[in-house]
C-alpha cells in the first residue's frame, strides 16, 4: 500500500506537466481574480505614492528625523522622575487622569441610557425619532474628545473638570449607539411574556428588556474605561487636566528621561485599569457572555 502510494507520487512528481494536462480545471489560471488582486494592490500603492507626493514627504527629512529620534531614545534611558516633589506631582496628575476617565465614562453611560432606548427600533417604533437620535449621536461622536475639551474649557475653565465633561460628551455619542444596538439585539421572548401577561410599554422595557441588556451594557462601559484612561492621559495637552500637560511640558523642556518615565507611568496605569475592568466584567457577566459582546 505504502509503496504503491509512494511510487504514485514519484511518478506524479517526475512529470508535473502531465498532471496539469490531465486536470486542466485545477491548473487553469483565474485571470479575473488575479486582475482584481493585482488591481487592488496597484491602486492602494498608487494612492500611497500620491499621498507621499502631496504631503511633501522627503526621504532626507525622514532619515534625519529618525536619527534625531534615535538620539532622543538614547537619552531617555534610564527613565527618571527627578526629585520627590516631581514624583508627587506626577502621581497626583495620574490619579487625576484616572478620576477623569472614571467620572467621564460613568456620566456618559448614565446620560446615554435613555437615548439608547430612544434610538432602539424595538423600543421606539417612530422612525423619525430614532433617525434623528442616531444621526445626532453620530455627529457628537465624530467630534474628538480634545475638541470637546476645548469647548468645555470655555464653560468651566481650565482643569480636570473640563476633561471629565469632554469624555462625557464624546462617549455619550458612542454609548448611545452601542446601547441602542445591544437593546435591538436583545432576546424578545421576555418582552413578549410581559406583554402577554398584561404589562404596558414601560413594564415591557423595565422588566422584559432591562434585566437582559443591563449586564451587556455594563460590560461595554467597563471595556470603554480602558480606552478612556488612554484618552485622559492626553487630554491635558489642551489644558483639561491629567498627566498630559506634564508630558507636553517635559517634551518642550527636552527632559527626555522624564518623558520616558511618564510614558512608563501611562503604560502601567492603562494596564492596571485594563486588568481591573476585565476582572469586574468577568464577575458581572461571566466568561461566555464576555466573548459574545465583541
Amino acid at each position: 500500500m505504502t509503496s504503491a502510494r509512494s511510487s504514485f507520487f514519484a511518478a506524479a512528481l517526475a512529470d508535473p506537466h502531465a498532471i496539469a494536462v490531465r486536470h486542466p480545471e485545477i491548473f487553469r489560471i483565474d485571470w479575473a481574480t488575479r486582475a482584481k488582486v493585482v488591481g487592488t494592490v496597484v491602486v492602494s500603492f498608487g494612492i500611497a505614492a500620491a499621498a507621499v507626493v502631496f504631503l511633501d514627504i522627503e526621504w532626507q527629512r525622514v532619515l534625519t528625523g529618525f536619527t534625531r529620534l534615535g538620539r532622543f531614545v538614547a537619552v531617555m534611558l534610564p527613565p527618571t522622575y527627578g526629585d520627590t516633589d516631581k514624583l508627587v506631582l506626577y502621581l497626583h496628575a495620574m490619579l487625576e487622569t484616572i478620576a477623569i476617565a472614571f467620572l467621564g465614562t460613568l456620566l456618559a453611560s448614565v446620560l446615554a441610557l435613555p437615548f439608547g432606548f430612544l434610538a432602539a427600533r424595538n423600543v421606539v417604533a417612530q422612525k423619525l425619532i430614532h433617525f434623528v437620535t442616531r444621526r445626532g449621536l453620530d455627529a457628537i461622536r465624530s467630534v474628538d474628545k480634545l475638541i470637546w475639551a476645548l469647548i468645555w474649557i470655555n464653560v468651566v475653565g481650565l482643569g480636570p473638570f473640563a476633561g471629565v465633561l469632554a469624555i462625557m460628551t464624546s462617549d455619550f455619542g458612542l454609548f448611545g449607539k452601542l446601547f441602542s444596538e445591544a437593546i435591538e439585539a436583545a432576546d424578545q421572548k421576555a418582552s413578549e411574556g410581559v406583554v402577554s401577561s398584561g404589562g404596558g410599554h414601560l413594564h415591557r422595557v423595565r422588566f422584559g428588556l432591562l434585566p437582559g441588556v443591563l449586564p451587556v451594557l455594563i460590560g461595554q462601559v467597563l471595556y470603554q474605561m480602558e480606552s478612556n484612561t488612554r484618552s485622559a492621559t492626553i487630554i491635558g495637552i489642551v489644558g483639561a487636566g491629567g498627566i498630559g500637560a506634564h508630558f507636553q511640558e517635559q517634551i518642550r523642556l527636552n527632559e527626555w528621561q522624564h518623558v520616558a518615565f511618564l510614558t512608563l507611568l501611562m503604560l502601567i496605569t492603562v494596564a492596571v485599569i485594563d486588568y481591573v475592568s476585565t476582572k469586574v466584567r468577568f464577575a458581572i457577566i461571566g466568561t461566555d457572555k464576555l466573548n459574545a459582546t465583541h
Binding site: R61, G65, I251
Partner: peptide, 19 residues
C-alpha cells in the same frame, strides 16, 4: 497603548512640523 497624539508630540520635535 501609547496614544497617537503622544507619539505625534515627540515626532514633531524630531521631524519638524507638518504632516
Amino acid at each position: 497603548t501609547v496614544p497617537e497624539i503622544a507619539f505625534a508630540m515627540i515626532f514633531v520635535v524630531a521631524f519638524g512640523f507638518g504632516p
